[in-house]
Design a binder for these strands. Sequence first.
DNA 1: CGACTTTGACCTGCGC
DNA 2: GCGCAGGTCAAAGTCG
Length: 275
Amino acid sequence: MWDHEFRNFHCPTDHTCSRVSLSAADPCSYMRLNFTDSLQSPIGYGRSLEKALAFSHSSSSQPPFSSVGATPNSCISYSSTQDGSDKSNKDCQLKELEDGSESSKKGNKLANKKGEKKHKETRFAFMTKSEVDLLEDGYRWRKYGQKAVKNSPYPSYYRCTTQKCRVKKRVERSFQDPSMVITTYEGQHKHPLPTTVKRPMLFPSFMLRPSPPPPRRRHELFTRMPGDMNNYQVAAGADSLMFAENFSPFLQVPDNELFQDMVPSAFLKHEPYEQ
DNA sequence: CGACTTTGACCTGCGC
DNA sequence: GCGCAGGTCAAAGTCG
């Protein structure tokens, strides 16, 4: 059971939709999101956030957040791709098998030969209002691709330049609000911050451990689930809810409060890094 | 000259 | 099985 309690979540949609629950009953201890109305009554959940949001908004054709309007949401999004079905057990096993191995294309081919599925790393997405696409987060990134996709003209794909580090990052402009940058991290850093880079202005905690430097200034942070990310798993079920209280239109990270304070401890685990 | 970006081609998963 | 969409590769180009 994850022991983290969320704070300051906000999702100013037609419904309040930010109940977060974690359950030890889930094979891989993944996150659950349950969508509730203003009376805190459950109105929807599902295996993908997109479906869940569509459900919660009673909108069959509109993509998630399309009904939100210009008001920025603040929903932190993170998950592994394991779900609560039988399939997840298999995925968990695959994860164990594939952890520590290269996830290159050749590697995937090899895995496919063995009848295994490609494991997708844990993901974490957030939205920031920024003029620059690539936020300074303390790590060094190398761009390895850029391709237009639906609802996102030119998302950029970055990889951590640290050897053996498999963390990836996708950066895209919000389709609905180009001033917003959606950053999606995949995987967790298991190495210290490079010493040659500037101190980060914005840094999700799992990117910063084990030695996060203090933030330099207040940074306005908007977070929400990108609408086109089907891999954000949301599971059915309503047990072990943890509530997101004190909603506010914008989520800010004050000087004395790290972004990590809003991230579940499951994302903060730092395992020994083998050089 | 090394590190990094660009970009077309290619691969893979998924829905129909 | 086919086609589309998303993601990745890798060669060439750029920059400091």
